[in-house]
Design a protein around this nucleic acid. Structure first.
Lengths: 339, 339
DNA sequence: TGTTCTACGTGTAGCGTTCTACAAAACTGC
DNA sequence: GCAGTTTTGTAGAACGCTACACGTAGAACA
């Protein structure tokens, strides 16, 4: 009836106990743990058996002090956009058969969160839609492997891994789709504060396609913060203006749902008075009360790929890679051909 | 031009360097860090200055090996329910002026996540709506301070801290509200698989109030998993049955939005053909395309209180506390008085 | 027979903190 | 001044793991 020496770690099994039980050295157990070179099958089996028997699990803090913690950080700007759920699902799939675990941080202050994750010795960080300055991210990438999902620029490729859909193309597709369905006065609802590179790309795509289609004169970009009231005001202002747009392309579904709300409130009909299109193709688009046409950028695939790239990076790759998905329009009633 | 000894921790400032810079011992710096007893003001100021100058941040792994990591775990069942965003906001508010950081885990397998968090030496864990067996949670609570948000039972109080709204009352309020607005055949849409204690409480409240109101014969509980298709089928089945309910109380807003979708799809009117009520009063309820009557359980307050309780627990409290919020109905058009 | 390899194990010094035990200094009260 | 008390500071041993450096044994080769 040996009592555990430390009541604090109350009964936690350590590598030493496993070694003792298996009749091998601590170093050997560590090797097995890390799948390191120089372990015979017999030894591995013995150690594995003991680990199972004692229900041993390595302590991340201790590992972190020497090497890696097998923990990845995942940073979302907020918890309200269901798109992030898709990305998360992809990340999870990628991690399924690995020994990595993912921990999320949520907030727009990437900086503080990333630092907290570095302090916690996470092996790498996945950033979703960071609207931090590229310079900060580049500096961050020097200290830790990172992968940015939804952060890119046409001209200068980032010095870290990125995973994106082609936002510029996505926006172009929206414009083409709307034109095909009889709309001409196509406005865009964009983000007001510190627009991320992604928002800028979508806006650029919108502008370029409008020009290409000879509708340069109709370009009309409204801006709003993420705050509900602000979005509502912006939409209202658009719809009450002298020449009302006959379609609004919202840079994200969340804004589109708000737009639908305002339009409904005003007693206008979608899509006959005004068509609405979003971006992300989140689950709510399918609901009969929304039936929102949107751009699918396969969040799940983005998440999956991002996690894979990050692990590759952690395990040695040094040159940055950039993965791009081709977006596609998912047409629903909110942009039906005008009758 | 002294190079850093370890290229791995590349340039990370350690407690030793701070001590050196301030001309004090390592132990002294540690004391300042932890606000421990026995530090003079002069010494504290000196150390603080050096910490600031060198931009020192303690390494969580190293702290974890000895004591606490000042990290709390927060576990959500999924990322799709916007209610969790409210809870999270509350948690964040509570942590604002503390040195604790929170890291999220997302998934229905509380077990695996909680173990991963314990392996990472988190000081405590917040569980949101766990539908794990109470027995497992009790065992978990023996090993780590935990607080469950949305997990309670009428009869046996949990041996760990809990934070809840009065779900039974919430359900009763819904029934009363619907009756007051002229509905009698009130059905409830509940959860099929492993209903959590919360779902059970809401169901119980529904049943009891129906009985109390003399509508016991009208009790009608449908069940569906969280999967969209499944919910749709359940709602459809309800609405196509011989005696169609004239109101559906959905155990969570998310299901209610799906219900609205199905009802709309079927060409029925809300609330004249059927009223819909949800639970959580999430942001989407306000949208004109939903206008969903819902029960507000102030997720933000729940999160705030939960985080506070957890920190208290970590810092010494031993008896379990139970915090309960009184829910209130937020009436919208989806349950308007029948005309 | 000696030499060189390779494969497999082990001993042990840290990693950056915390915290106990203790020493020194600064106050008490007489 | 001196014993007793309190305050302030320090030394140094852990915590659980990794990984370097090294030892040993047997095989392969000349």
């Amino acid at each position: 009836m040996n009592e555990p020496k430390s009541s604090k770690r109350q009964g936690r099994v350590t590598i030493r106990e496993v070694a003792e039980d298996a009749g091998v050295s601590v170093a050997a157990v560590s090797k097995v743990l890390r799948d390191a070179y120089g372990v015979s099958d017999t030894l591995r089996d013995k150690v594995r058996a003991s680990m199972g028997k004692l229900n041993y699990r390595p302590l991340a803090s201790a590992r972190g002090l020497r090497g890696r913690t097998y923990t990845l950080g995942l940073i979302f700007p907020d918890l309200r956009n269901p798109f992030f759920g898709d990305v998360f699902a992809g990340v999870n799939t990628a991690l399924e058969r690995t020994q990595y675990q993912v921990m999320q941080g949520i907030g727009t202050t990437i900086g503080a969160l990333a630092e907290a994750m570095i302090d916690r010795q996470m092996d790498g960080i996945l950033l979703v839609g960071p609207n931090e300055a590229p310079a900060y991210l580049s500096e961050l990438a020097l200290r830790k492997p990172i992968v940015a999902i939804g952060h890119h620029d046409d001209l200068t490729p980032m010095p870290f891994d990125t995973v994106n859909n082609d936002d510029q193309l996505g926006a172009r597709l929206v414009v083409r789709h709307l034109i095909a369905n009889g709309h001409r006065k196509i406005a865009m609802l964009s983000l007001l504060q510190e627009p991320s590179t992604v928002v800028r790309q979508r806006e650029l795509g919108y502008r370029l396609e409008m020009m290409d289609q000879g509708l340069g004169a109709n370009i009309n970009v409204g801006r709003a913060t993420q705050v509900a009231r602000d979005v509502q005001l912006s939409v209202k202002r658009m719809l009450e203006s002298a020449d009302r747009p006959d379609a609004i392309f919202c840079w994200t579904d969340l804004m589109a749902f708000e737009a639908i709300s305002v339009v409904t409130e005003m007693g206008l009909s979608i899509p006959d008075d005004v068509a609405i299109v979003g971006y992300d193709n989140t689950m709510y688009c399918d609901f009969a009360q929304n039936r929102l046409t949107s751009v699918d950028q396969s969040g799940e695939l983005l998440g999956l790929q991002a996690a894979r790239l990050l692990i590759e990076r952690i395990e040695g790759r040094t040159e940055a890679e950039h993965f791009v998905v081709t977006p596609r329009i998912v047409a629903r009633a909110s942009s039906r051909k005008r009758g």
